[in-house]
Design a protein around this nucleic acid. Structure first.
Lengths: 198, 198, 198, 198
DNA sequence: AATGAATGAGCGTTCATTCAT
DNA sequence: AATGAATGAACGCTCATTCAT
């Protein structure tokens, strides 16, 4: 089980640091190796190639996302509460590790189509957690009976993602986590005034 | 004004075609030159460097977006209607030019941080049109009085963008424009059931 | 016609010098470029890749061999005379360009199977000239009526090649051309004593 | 004496198999170790370096050649007979072990100049057996009194070698051993017709 | 004796940019 | 203005060898 070898994690963490500090296209294997304190060749004992390092960074971090989200939503009764803690957790994880935020929101998106296709595969697990909350809410009558789950998922993920990216582009200069309730409210209730007739 | 010279437009259009057909990383200056019917060196008479070509592609196309959106929203009275036609137009432009959709949703995002920073600058004009609609709606009492404009803008743009990207990743196999009313409804009213007490 | 561009020949000649002086495995593109007085990238304007440079060295030189041989054998009446001048010319060309001798007899043989397969293709033209002399001699009654042409060709080429290689391995310390008549006699008459009954 | 240790032979045999199956440039130490059932490092307990493994392969196999040839020529009276059985044995050994044939005729020749220089040293023993047959024949009056022994040896070895290589390049699709008498006749009597006046 | 994880030097090729014509 | 031949920096990956255990 390669994931338990200390060097595996060591290289993953080094990759996050190097990519955040240098950008995707300036993250040569030699830099990652130096940061990890190993020889270039050692990376190839744990990873198939450079792409495998990058996809593994994403897999490991996304697995952490999914695990964390699953933990916090389990403790909540309603879909609305589950969504709130999901958004909060998502923002908390990025706020707690700003280098990770740079990597996931900006740098990894510069990868080529192949890598981004693989990243999308990994993302699916996360999106399916989100979809299961939506289905749960729809069944309970909390959410609209005719809610298009996929579209709603795209709205919610799109909103969280855009919010997080804007925050990173603004160099983290405001509190991302504090936005969670407002984002949550927008998603559940929309923009429209209560007394407007649509 | 370089933009009025015929070769300027010629090179821009050639770049869109080449990027859509070959992908960002396979779009060498020599390919763009060949597609445009000029010599490699000629490109450097109209553009500072390769990045300038790409940012110009984005600027030109985004200007078209802004112009089109301004046209359609001018003919609508309410903010809700303006938003609907904005979403529809956004989706229509991408549906009408699938190469452009590939370029904006997938390929240009592979560019490096510098280029994407500049693209974000260009995007601001588009986003400010969106913000002005939201302000208009808030003033008219259509939209929530306490609506956080910037956050709402992020939600709306994030949702449209994610919806469009998913559509491109699914190889345009369903009708993107047909989703506009549902996206519009989600944005205005949210996911929550009417009779739920939030 | 790339072969007439001066840089093409320039690079071929540089390759011969570099390979002879450094050996096949130490003949990096950068060394060949430096020797030719061009930039590394320039080589790729004239050759597809490194293998293409090496195979072209062989093709050009072998074409010279074939042309020279054809010239000298045309002036001779009998197959025996043709063979003699062929062997002499073969040895003369190698003697006149000792670097070329090192390259063809030692260095190019270290190439991988793919390259050597392609070299063999080029060699076929040379071997067919040899076979045509043998056929001519058989028809004229000079050579044995039941001579196995292919086997005789292998004997003659094998003998010339081994003789030349041994000479190169001995660092050209004796006169290769002077051996031609003896090689010719061995090939025509064999080793056996005239009065022996076999 | 390292050669008597079981792992020594084990590694040699593994090397022959690996080189024949993968080619010279794809025969990494790790592959040879795996085939031999030992660790990579173990090879360095028995061999100085990779070159030492390869030269040892050649030495061991060439020793077998020499021993076998010495056995068969001892049973023959005339030089002509000795030569015939030598050629036959040479071809038989290669026919019987096609992997060995690939290794000696094609793969080992891709090695660098140093290694091939050492291989030539080993070859000398084989060549000296051949020369002693020629000297024996000359003394007995069987072979020409003025025969240049070294040149004749080059002709004979070159012919056998070229014949064997051509056979390997033709993927062993004809019977190599069956060619021995014809090769023998060519070597002894040459190509020339009996009644020609040379 | 035996292991195998770790090392790190080495190189073919691409392509944005220049500049003499 | 337009050309396009020439430039040369930059990097992922392999694998023979070592050495702590």
């Amino acid at each position: 089980m390669r994931r338990n070898k200390p060097k595996y994690k060591q290289i993953i963490e080094a990759a996050v640091v190097v990519i955040a500090e240098n950008g995707y296209h300036q993250s040569q294997i030699s830099k990652i190796a130096r940061q990890a304190g190993v020889a270039d060749g050692t990376i190839y004992l744990y990873f198939k190639n450079k792409e495998d390092v990058l996809i593994s960074v994403f897999k490991e971090k996304m697995a952490m996302f999914v695990q964390k989200i699953n933990e916090v939503i389990a403790g909540k009764e309603t879909a609305a509460e589950k969504l709130l803690v999901m958004i909060e957790s998502h923002f908390k994880i990025l706020s707690a590790d700003k280098k990770l935020a740079i990597v996931t929101q900006l740098e990894l998106r510069q990868s080529n189509k192949d890598l981004r296709f693989k990243i999308n595969e990994v993302l699916k697990e996360y999106l399916s957690v989100l979809e299961s909350i939506l289905e749960y809410g729809r069944e309970r009558g909390e959410l609209k009976a005719d809610l298009d789950i996929r579209l709603a998922r795209q709205m919610i993920f799109g909103t969280m993602d855009e919010t997080a990216t804007t925050w990173v582009l603004n160099e983290h200069k405001y509190d991302l986590v504090a936005l969670a309730p407002k984002v949550h409210s927008l998603i559940l209730n929309g923009c429209m005034s209560k007394n407007a007739n649509s």
